[in-house]
């Protein structure tokens, strides 16, 4: 009548393991949104290959930029479905990785929690390095350079640059196909001021995109920031608070 520890452990393990199992087609999905896409959507498909129903306890995305949608809360044995994860791209660029953590009532811990991964490679139409140049108040007004490179998916042939502040001069020099250098020179660095630079392209034809960078004369060390618009202000659209504090709609990105 003695029941060995081994028999007891193995039988309880197999009882639990045979109960339910949600099998995922893919745990990781890679997406390649195009330039200007607002969203990237991943469909994580599953099937209950176990013998009892599975309940979703929670489905949580790793960031507020990703929303999830489950078709059902209960998945019966043999039933298929999917969880749709929608990643709102916003102004993000480059490699992005967002996760969705799914918790079910599966008694096997390894199967109860599943981490689904959404990877998205967001192309940057025009890379500006840097998108911000500055001189300290009183610094010698030497030119500073912004290097620009167009993505393969954004075949702009020419760009032009416009300084929105007459104190800053900006010139474009072509380096190679799809590559340019903008040289920015302030006429005077004695006053704190800011200049939005508008970079206009010739692509796509009909509705060419423009991008922005910023040039600025900063306050000397220790001085209060003369251009500070409103420190705790909510993220309202840019407004001009002083003649020098001209805000641009974008910096280094698409409008």
């Amino acid at each position: 009548m003695k029941t060995s520890i081994l028999t007891l452990t193995l039988s309880s393990f197999f009882c639990v393991a045979a109960r339910a199992e949600l099998k995922w087609e893919q745990n990781t999905i890679e997406l390649h949104p195009g330039i200007g896409d607002k969203q990237a959507v991943a469909h994580f498909k599953y099937e209950n290959v176990g013998k009892t129903p599975v309940h979703f306890k929670s489905v949580k995305a790793s960031c507020g930029c990703t929303t999830t949608q489950t078709q059902k809360e209960l998945v019966n044995p043999g039933e298929k479905g999917e969880i749709v994860a929608t990643f709102n791209i916003g102004d993000r660029i480059g490699q992005q990785m967002k996760t969705v953590t799914v918790q079910t009532d599966d008694p096997v811990p390894a199967q109860a929690t599943t981490v689904l991964t959404l990877k998205a490679d967001i192309p940057q139409a025009l890379e500006l390095k840097p998108n911000f140049v500055y001189w300290q108040s009183g610094e010698e007004p030497k030119p500073k350079k912004i290097s620009i490179k167009a993505a393969k998916e954004f075949p702009a042939k020419n760009i032009t640059v416009k300084s929105n502040n007459p104190n800053f001069e900006a010139k474009v020099k072509a380096r190679a196909a799809g590559e340019w250098t903008i040289e920015v020179t302030p006429k005077d660095t004695s006053r704190v001021m800011i200049a939005p630079l508008t970079i206009e392209t010739d692509y796509p034809k009909g509705a060419p995109k423009s991008f922005n960078a910023t040039a600025q004369i900063t306050n000397p060390p220790g001085a209060a920031p003369a251009l500070r618009p409103s420190p705790a202000a909510p993220p309202a659209p840019a407004t001009t608070s002083t003649p020098a504090a001209i805000s641009s709609p974008a910096a280094g990105g698409q409008r």
């Binding site: 930029c65 920031p225 993220p235 280094g252």
Partner: peptide, 15 residues
């Protein structure tokens, strides 16, 4: 989410 709009609002505060 709104990097291109918010960065120019941040820069004037920086030194």
């Amino acid at each position: 989410d709104r990097w291109n709009e918010l960065l120019p609002q941040f820069l004037p505060n920086w030194s």
